[in-house]
Design a protein around this nucleic acid. Structure first.
Length: 505
RNA sequence: GGCCCGUUCGUCUAGGGGUAAGGACAGGAGAUUUUCAUUCUUCAAACAGGGGUUCGAUUCCCCUACGGGCUACCA
């Protein structure tokens, strides 16, 4: 039985998307496009207490920026909507009731205090893992332990309740994971999870299964943190009679801290100085700002290429993959099982590679606002030449304007020590006097003519390039390194070059 | 603690019963360049440990160690 592929990215709008979340979305997207299926965004906001304003928009904007176009979603619509779980609230009760009627779920009236007390008591008795399960449920207040009329009375009185799944005792639950193979759990280790909360909302487990069923999802591609709750989901599919359309599972490895142990977190980014979110994010409560990959200067294609390779590899030695190539090469079977430590240096390398492959025209368009912000007003030809001079020297787009700032304004600093050391050499000041007069008489101010003028003096006076050029470079740019000198001089302009030479003596 | 998942150079990884264990990032050296960057050449760098199975294990199995995840009326 083969159904058309439908996958979903199902984040909770509790804050900005982190790297792992974006990668989960990316693998879903790649898989959908590769198999000609649909890529769906479903917002899982069943926990109303964790709602964060702006998070939903942030998620969608992130996907858009990274080039993951949606087939169905809260903006795009689709025939399986609505795509926000809070808007689907009315859909879930029916299935909860079905479970209740078939005896696979039950009402539980225990208060948080009673639950806490149970756990504490068990713990003090040496029970390693206190849980609401097939043994403890006998002693708690629920429709399995209470007489039927008592249960009815509580319900009629409108007493608060939750619905729990009745997990069978000592049953082997096995499921196939595309990445990990067969995974086996024993039901005795699983507790009677709440599937329907006191506030009338389903929990993740219930909503997720119902929606995946209703939306005809064929593959569940999600983070490894969901692996332990998958047996609950398998049980739910079985109890609801949906086994034959249960999706296939693929649990992705986690993205880890570059140093030390554990999952990559926002703290690591702050501490080590790199973004962990795709876009800038401002915490609406604290006003705290977080840097995004976009704002850090990453090209979306470089970002997705880098991210795709964090935990996946097509097998060859090629690492630079355009979006279409990524789609073509992608397969879940080649996703690795172990977590990957995030390496910002490698991420930078990817970006640099993509900058080098971007045309000067495209770069110019991307940089227009940067140039404007820096107060740089030059014609396109000039700007394109500038970009081509620095394209091999930057790793981020936003570094362009600062990289050669001295072309547009006077150098802000000189390396005096370096300069004086070279300047003090016998005959150098005299040579530069000559160079200045030569340069003054250059009428057609072009790189080749500047070069000819300087080289003439250099040869006449018997100096080597290494004695003249660095001095000239420092005079006009203030720096010891940079793009080809004569092109630089041409761009800075005759008058300004002569002025800077005079100033620096 | 319990359950589940994992473990190849510092990092991301390829490979797979017999290999010189390959590539990339980062690092070292060199070439090119006035310089920086780029580019090129080159060096160093790994199968967690112990048992099996086998003629032969890095590869298959088991154990240990280590790492990670989960263990809520959160997702």
């Amino acid at each position: 039985m083969s159904r058309p592929v439908r996958v979903r990215f199902a984040p909770s709008p509790t804050g900005p998307l982190h790297l792992g979340g974006v990668r989960t979305a990316l693998y879903n997207y790649l898989f959908a496009r590769k198999s000609g299926g649909k890529f769906i965004l479903r917002i899982e906001d069943t926990d109303q207490t964790r709602f964060v304003p702006g998070a939903e928009e942030y998620i969608m904007e992130s996907l858009r920026w990274a080039g993951m176009d949606l087939d169905e979603g809260i903006i795009e619509g689709g025939e399986f909507g609505p795509y926000r779980q809070s808007d689907r609230k009315h859909l879930y009760k029916k299935y909860v009731d079905q479970l209740l009627e078939s005896g696979h779920a039950y009402y539980a009236f225990d208060t948080p205090e009673e639950l806490e007390e149970m756990r504490e008591r068990l713990k003090s008795q040496g029970v390693p893992n206190p849980a609401y399960n097939h043994v403890t449920r006998q002693y708690m207040k629920n429709s399995l332990s209470l007489p039927a009329d008592e249960v009815q009375k509580r319900l009629d009185e409108g007493q608060a309740y939750v619905v729990r799944i009745k997990v069978p005792r000592n049953e082997e639950i096995r499921f196939h994971d595309i990445i990990r193979g067969w995974v086996i759990f024993n039901s005795s280790q699983i507790d009677d999870k709440v599937i329907f909360k006191g506030d009338g909302m389903p929990t993740y487990h219930m909503a997720n299964i119902v929606d995946d069923y209703l939306m005809q999802i064929t593959h569940v591609i999600r983070g490894e943190e969901w692996l332990p709750s998958t047996p609950i989901h398998v049980l739910l599919y079985k109890f609801l009679g949906w086994e034959e359309v249960m999706p296939e599972f693929a649990h992705l490895p986690l993205i880890l801290k570059p140093d030390g142990n554990g999952k990559l977190s926002k703290r690591d980014g702050d501490r080590l100085g790199f973004p962990v979110f795709p876009l800038n994010w401002t915490n609406p409560e604290t006003g705290e700002q977080s840097l995004g990959f976009r704002e850090r200067g990453f090209l979306p294609e470089a970002f997705t290429n880098m991210l795709a390779f964090l935990g996946w590899n097509p097998g060859g030695t090629q690492e630079l993959f355009k979006k279409d190539e990524l789609i073509d090469a992608f397969s879940l079977e080649r996703v690795s099982k172990s977590g990957a430590k995030f390496d910002f240096e490698k991420a930078k390398w990817f970006n640099q590679q993509y900058i080098k492959e971007t045309s000067v025209e495209d770069l110019l368009e991307a940089l227009r606002s940067d140039f404007a912000a820096a107060g740089i007003e030059k014609d396109d030809e000039f700007l394109k030449k500038y970009i081509s001079l620095f394209i091999d020297r930057v790793t981020f787009v936003k570094e362009f304007t600062a990289a050669g700032y001295y072309i547009f304004e006077k150098p802000r600093a000189y390396d005096e020590a370096q300069f004086n050391k070279r300047w003090s050499k016998e005959g150098i000041p005299a040579a530069f006097d000559e160079i200045r007069t030569q340069l003054t008489s250059v009428t057609d101010w072009s790189a080749v003519n500047i070069e000819a003028a300087i080289k003439e003096v250099m040869h006449d006076k018997g100096f080597k390039p290494g004695e003249i050029m660095p001095v000239f470079r420092m005079m006009i740019s203030g720096e010891a390194g940079g793009p080809p000198l004569f092109d630089l001089a041409e761009m800075i302009g005759k008058e300004e070059v002569l002025q800077r030479m005079a100033d620096s003596i």
